[in-house]
Amino acid sequence: MTELHYCDFWFSAKKSARNIINESEAKSRHENHARYTVLVGSTTTPSAIVDVLLGKDMIGVDFLDEHLRERLTYQFQRVASDKLFLSMVVHREFTGKSDNVAKGTCYIFNEDGRLTIIKEAFSPHHLEECSTTHDPIGNYEPVPVFGHYSGLIAEERWMLMPDRLDRPRGGAQADAIAPLSALVGLSLTPQFRAAFVKQQRA
């Protein structure tokens, strides 16, 4: 059984949990749609973090590497009282053992099957984007019962993501990749910058 711990939130910049709380307190927050965070495996070196924000109709999941860097992020939005939709996945690669993001890929999903893939490298800077389609059925997940988060932390979801901008899996045909010159300023918008270089959800 996966070991679970609970806290107010995970402070990414300090790579530490803030205010460890007991299971009873976490359950009360879950039932009252108050924020709490699940630490998977350890209070100090968790393998994943589940930030439960049901009061804001969202749940965020971060998978950490051995240096406690957020290598993979899932963002779920509540689309019905009992249903979540995986709306965004961000994969990051880092420079050596530092916390500097070298490059990342962001997948933005829509319930109607539209999918936008954005790849960004930072040194030297380069940005490209394409649009394609996906089967949204695999993006739905039940709103978790307290203490049961296995569906949210299923890393296999990432393995099914299209791995190339110009050749998505499943035979879907991507639109032409937009060069950086056609996307001036996009990488500076808060949603994408925050997705790749995220410090804290607070």
Results as ranks from 00 to 15, higher is better:
2 T>D: 13
3 E>F: 07
6 Y>N: 03
10 W>T: 04
12 S>L: 01
12 S>T: 01
12 S>V: 03
12 S>Q: 04
12 S>P: 01
15 K>A: 02
15 K>G: 01
15 K>S: 02
16 S>H: 02
18 R>S: 03
20 I>N: 00
24 S>A: 06
26 A>H: 03
26 A>G: 05
31 E>C: 05
32 N>Y: 03
32 N>Q: 09
32 N>H: 10
33 H>S: 14
35 R>W: 07
36 Y>N: 06
36 Y>G: 02
36 Y>W: 08
37 T>R: 02
43 T>G: 12
44 T>W: 05
48 A>E: 05
52 V>R: 00
52 V>T: 04
54 L>E: 00
55 G>K: 02
56 K>W: 03
57 D>I: 13
58 M>Y: 07
59 I>Y: 00
60 G>N: 12
60 G>L: 12
61 V>E: 02
68 L>C: 11
69 R>Y: 03
72 L>S: 08
76 F>L: 05
77 Q>T: 15
79 V>G: 05
80 A>S: 12
82 D>Y: 01
82 D>V: 06
86 L>S: 01
91 H>D: 15
92 R>G: 05
93 E>N: 09
95 T>F: 09
97 K>P: 10
102 A>V: 13
102 A>N: 12
103 K>C: 11
103 K>F: 08
105 T>I: 10
106 C>G: 05
111 E>C: 09
112 D>V: 15
112 D>C: 14
117 I>N: 02
117 I>H: 01
119 K>G: 08
119 K>T: 12
119 K>E: 13
120 E>N: 09
121 A>S: 15
124 P>F: 05
128 E>T: 02
129 E>K: 00
129 E>P: 00
129 E>A: 04
129 E>G: 01
134 H>R: 14
136 P>K: 06
137 I>G: 08
139 N>A: 12
139 N>P: 10
141 E>C: 15
142 P>H: 05
142 P>E: 06
143 V>D: 07
143 V>Y: 06
147 G>N: 10
150 S>Q: 14
150 S>T: 15
151 G>R: 04
152 L>I: 07
155 E>D: 13
157 R>C: 09
159 M>W: 09
159 M>Y: 06
162 P>I: 13
162 P>K: 10
162 P>E: 13
164 R>G: 10
166 D>Q: 11
172 A>V: 15
172 A>L: 12
175 D>V: 13
176 A>M: 14
179 P>F: 09
182 A>R: 09
185 G>N: 09
187 S>Y: 07
187 S>P: 11
188 L>R: 10
190 P>L: 03
190 P>S: 04
192 F>H: 08
195 A>E: 00
195 A>T: 01
195 A>C: 02
196 F>R: 04
198 K>W: 02
200 Q>Y: 00
201 R>H: 14
202 A>N: 11
